[in-house]
């Protein structure tokens, strides 16, 4: 019984990956919108773009980690 509950929990935790995908999409989309308005400033902001993507994605990875822990370590 406990194992099944853990599986359900893992599935729920995986929703976080989708949320992180929304976040990363937001970052990249807004970067593109800004870059198309002012292409000359775009190149200097790629580092910021990657940092933003990394921060947004890290939280998705956390939820993935929770799912893994529920699947394999609980």
């Amino acid at each position: 019984m406990e194992g099944e509950l853990a599986h359900i929990g893992a599935g729920l935790a995986a929703i976080g990956s989708g949320a992180a995908a929304i976040g990363v999409g937001n970052v990249a989309g807004n970067y593109l919108a800004g870059a198309l308005r002012n292409p000359s400033a775009a190149a200097s902001q790629t580092a910021t773009l990657f940092i933003g993507i990394a921060f947004a994605e890290a939280l998705g990875i956390f939820s993935f980690l929770v799912a893994l822990l529920l699947m394999f370590a609980v």
Binding site: E2, G3, L69, F72
Partner: peptide
């Protein structure tokens, strides 16, 4: 059955090698 599989997994070592 759950406990059974659980023990099987336990026997094969911890689930996540990263947390060993």
């Amino acid at each position: 059955m759950a406990t059974e599989t659980h023990s099987a997994a336990e026997a094969a070592g911890p689930g996540m090698p990263q947390l060993d």
